[in-house]
Simulated assay, not measured.
Amino acid sequence: MTLLFFQTTDSVNKIIDTAKHAGVQMAQAPDQEIHFGDLIIKGGWVMIPIGILAVLGLVIFFERYFTIRKASKNESNLMIQVRSSIHTGNLESAIAICRNSNTPLGRMLQKGLLRIGRPIKDIEGAIENVGKLEVSKLEKNIGILGIVAGIAPMFGFLGTIIGVIKIFFDISKTDNFSIGVISGGLYVKMITSAAGLTVGIVAYVGYHILNMMVERLILNLETDAIEFIDLLEEPSK
C-alpha cells in the first residue's frame, strides 16, 4: 500500500514538472505576428505586376472620377444665359458664354450657335458630333481599368500555381511530406491570390462607377441638347 502511494505521488510530480516545462517553453516562444510588408515580400515576384496594376487602377480611377465630376456640374445657369441671349438676338453673347464655360455642354451649344442659319438637321448633326467627341474624351482610359479588373486576379492565381509547383518540387527533392511544409508554403503563395482578387474587385467596382457617371452625363447632355434645339425652333413656330 505504501509502495503504491509513493508510485502515484511520483507520477503526479512528473506530470506537474512536464506541465511547468511546457509552460516555460510557451512563455519563451516568440509571438508570431503577420505583418503586411512581410506578406507582400513572401508573395514573390508576382506581387510586382499586381502592385503596378493596383497603382495604375487607382491613378486612372481618381483622374477620370474628378474629370467626369467636373464635366457633370449643373449647367442650368448656362442654359438660362444662352436662352436669354437668343431671345434678345444677341448670338455673339451666347457664343461667348458657351466658350467661357469650358464644359462639354458649352462646346456643344457653341457649335450649334455657330450653325444658326442652316437647316435644323445640320445643327442637330453638328451638336451630336461634338457630343460624341466629348463623351469619347470622358471615356478615355476607362477601358484600361476594365482590363486591370480582368488580369489582376489572373496574376494572383498564377502566383498560387507557381507556389504549389514549388512546394511539390521541394517535396520531391527532400522527401519531406509534412503538413508544416505544405501548409506553410501554400499560405504564403495564397497571398498572391488574395492580392490579385482585391485589386481586381476594386478595379471592377471603379470601372462600373465611372461608366455609370458617364451614362448619367450623356443623358444630361442629350436633355440639354434637345432643349437647345427646341429653343432654336421657337421663332419659326
Results as ranks from 00 to 15, higher is better:
residue 204 Y to W: 03
residue 12 V to H: 06
residue 74 N to R: 15
residue 221 L to R: 07
residue 226 I to V: 08
residue 92 E to L: 05
residue 119 P to C: 10
residue 22 A to E: 12
residue 137 K to P: 01
residue 77 N to P: 15
residue 233 E to T: 10
residue 184 G to P: 14
residue 36 F to Q: 14
residue 171 I to C: 05
residue 218 I to C: 03
residue 92 E to A: 08
residue 88 T to Q: 07
residue 207 Y to W: 08
residue 39 L to I: 14
residue 26 M to C: 13
residue 98 C to L: 07
residue 176 N to F: 09
residue 114 L to D: 14
residue 192 T to I: 07
residue 132 K to F: 02
residue 21 H to L: 09
residue 120 I to W: 01
residue 50 I to Y: 00
residue 222 E to A: 02
residue 64 R to M: 02
residue 133 L to R: 00
residue 215 E to F: 05
residue 151 I to T: 05
residue 87 H to K: 08
residue 128 E to L: 05
residue 73 K to S: 09
residue 195 A to P: 00
residue 59 V to D: 03
residue 162 I to D: 01
residue 89 G to P: 12
residue 65 Y to K: 08
residue 90 N to P: 15
residue 184 G to C: 09
residue 17 D to Q: 10
residue 15 I to L: 03
residue 37 G to K: 04
residue 51 G to Q: 06
residue 135 V to D: 00
residue 175 D to E: 12
residue 14 K to S: 04
residue 192 T to A: 13
residue 45 W to A: 04
residue 120 I to Y: 00
residue 40 I to Q: 04
residue 81 Q to N: 15
residue 193 S to R: 04
residue 79 M to C: 11
residue 42 K to N: 13
residue 16 I to M: 00
residue 213 M to G: 03
residue 107 R to S: 06
residue 6 F to A: 13
residue 45 W to D: 04
residue 89 G to N: 08
residue 175 D to C: 02
residue 90 N to G: 11
residue 188 V to M: 01
residue 40 I to D: 07
residue 95 I to C: 04
residue 110 Q to K: 02
residue 212 M to Y: 11
residue 100 N to L: 03
residue 101 S to R: 09
residue 183 S to M: 05
residue 135 V to T: 08
residue 196 G to L: 06
residue 228 F to I: 02
residue 38 D to L: 05
residue 174 T to H: 11
residue 24 V to W: 12
residue 20 K to A: 14
residue 161 I to L: 10
residue 149 A to T: 06
residue 61 F to A: 07
residue 142 I to A: 05
residue 77 N to V: 02
residue 66 F to S: 11
residue 155 F to W: 10
residue 126 A to N: 00
residue 125 G to Q: 04
residue 79 M to R: 05
residue 192 T to R: 07
residue 51 G to H: 05
residue 196 G to I: 04
residue 110 Q to W: 00
residue 175 D to T: 05
